[in-house]
Design a protein around this nucleic acid. Structure first.
Lengths: 160, 160
DNA sequence: CAATCCTTGTTATGTTATAACATCGCGAAG
DNA sequence: CTTCGCGATGTTATAACATAACAAGGATTG
């Protein structure tokens, strides 16, 4: 698994593949992949960037699906718990999972200039941190790793 | 003596040492360690837990030091930039740095039951993530690592 | 077909954070 | 010395993010 998000790829395929995979997973796990939930995932996939709950809400509202905050937050909560999306704590924003279906500890690379977000793998990091934690008697359940800096494009733009 | 990290130690010494170190650092770096800023750091050190900006604001207000949000946010911003405090993104809360003066990439262990926060070292993790990032052409400037789970005390409390 | 559970709709409110502008004090430039 | 500029603070207002609480519908299952 490598970092993706700063490379070109075929977006339509990415979207339809992920939606299909989500659909399958929900059938298997007896989860309800309702229209609102499906649409929110679709929006996140289409935009392919971290979006605030209210950004999503705007889109939903324009399409006639409830425009009250709980609508968006509930759908996002579902998607995050199902592993289809992640919350970027630094941005108070949400992004579609780049590796759906695969068990993973995500790490995010967040560009402070253009807000692009790439998802990498933090398993390695987790192992080392886990040692320190267990030495302290702490039981880790979940780890978030968010690195901020400059993506390749914004580095070029910033260069003299 | 109160719980720190997840161990015990002498709190008063910890507070006065840190304040002195901060004072020195500000003189050296020509930073203004003003009364409000000093008091906010003192509050964080005294409470020795992650506090919301509005928690701090309450204390400041009771002491006659301006009770408007910007007062707290400005002081916190200063302390974070100076390395005297850290923001815990998951909690939208702030905590005094446990290793002031030492250059470090902090990792936090956050108890989801009692909200205690311990500060560990994430340098190791950073190295591995850095490899993945540079492979993607991403320039990391800052990394946040926050692990949530159960502290030793709450594990005992949860056990049958 | 009733009981139950999950989802959604909706109102209201709570929590976190910043914009914008006025003022004040201090140290440097003139 | 004084005035200029700058960083810090005071203050008002508002933006941005998030959840509580309750009503109502619709599917599933016993």
């Amino acid at each position: 698994m490598t970092a993706i998000g700063f490379e070109f790829h075929d977006h339509k395929v990415c979207i339809s593949d992920t939606l299909q995979a989500a659909e399958r997973h929900c059938v298997d796990a007896k989860l309800h992949f309702t229209p609102v939930r499906r649409r929110v995932l679709e929006i996140l996939l289409q935009e392919h960037r971290a979006m605030g709950a209210y950004d999503i809400l705007d889109v939903l509202g324009r399409e006639g699906m409830g425009a009250q905050p709980p609508v968006a937050y509930r759908a996002l909560d579902f998607l995050v718990r199902a592993g289809f999306a992640h919350k970027i704590e630094q941005l108070n924003a949400y992004i579609a999972c780049a590796h759906p279906g695969v068990s993973h500890a995500p790490a995010f690379l967040i560009c402070r200039s253009c807000n692009a977000v790439a998802e990498a793998d933090a398993e390695l990091a987790k192992g080392r941190l886990g040692d320190a934690a267990s030495a302290a008697g702490f039981l880790i359940e979940r780890t978030i790793v968010e690195a901020s800096g400059l993506c390749p494009i914004c580095q070029s733009a910033a260069a003299p």
